[in-house]
Amino acid sequence: MRSILVEKFARQSLRSLRFNLFSAPSAVKLFFAFFAVRTMRSTEIAHLLKLEWQLDRRQKHAWGSMALYVVSTVYVCYQGVRHLSETPIWNALFWIILLFAAFNALGRSFQRENSGRQLYLYTLASPRSVVLARTIYNAITMAVLSLLSLAAYALFIGSAPLEGAQMGTFILVVMAGGVGFALVLTLISALAARAGNGIGLMAILGFPIVLPMLLSVMKASKLALDGMGWDVTGKYVIWLLLIDVITVVLAWLLFPYLWRD
């Protein structure tokens, strides 16, 4: 009950602030205005996330196509190499598969909007909420997809390199890598969609930017497979988190310019 009252007051103070920003900017009002903006943004983001989820649930083929892409790629590799037991090659092949799965999955992130619906979204929501919601949704998607890829990959190509591995660290690195790809490629996917050139342009724009991340994540997962603990792989994961934070901040800053036409 109290929180509803606070929010109500915050909304009121925001409304009054809009009209009286120059006449009566008191510290209390500003404080509640910030509070209001924050709550509105997070509810907006939650709504957008829900929208994404409902869209994906309605078009079931989206998830199916991602899963099918991973499984068929793994199967093609299986036909080529049967079982791999050398850790470096096993590791490299896994990351290549996951990288292309990420490009494939995130490429459609901004493609499915036609311009009419985009205009509608534009009038409803703040662009920063849109990009944050898409980023969060893509990150969750990629976390799931990376685990799915790992399962399919271990099933077909063989799980020999996993036997001596630090499994906890390895799975953490795999998920961190997948989430990192999602964060970097969300803005790139929006750019490619705006340039009207689809997934081909996205690969060209995204590859050099993802490459640094790919190098460090490959190294970290190789170390985890070799049985190295967190004390060795930790610095790579922290570096990955640093890139993630910078990427999200940049996307947050730049997306409004991309969104308006």
Binding site: V184, L187, I188, L191, L205, P208, I209, P212, I243, I246, T247, L250, A251, L254, Y257, L258
Partner: peptide, 9 residues
């Protein structure tokens, strides 16, 4: 937008 994004990274 691409230039700023890529330059910082």
């Amino acid at each position: 937008i691409y230039n700023i994004f890529a330059y910082v990274l």
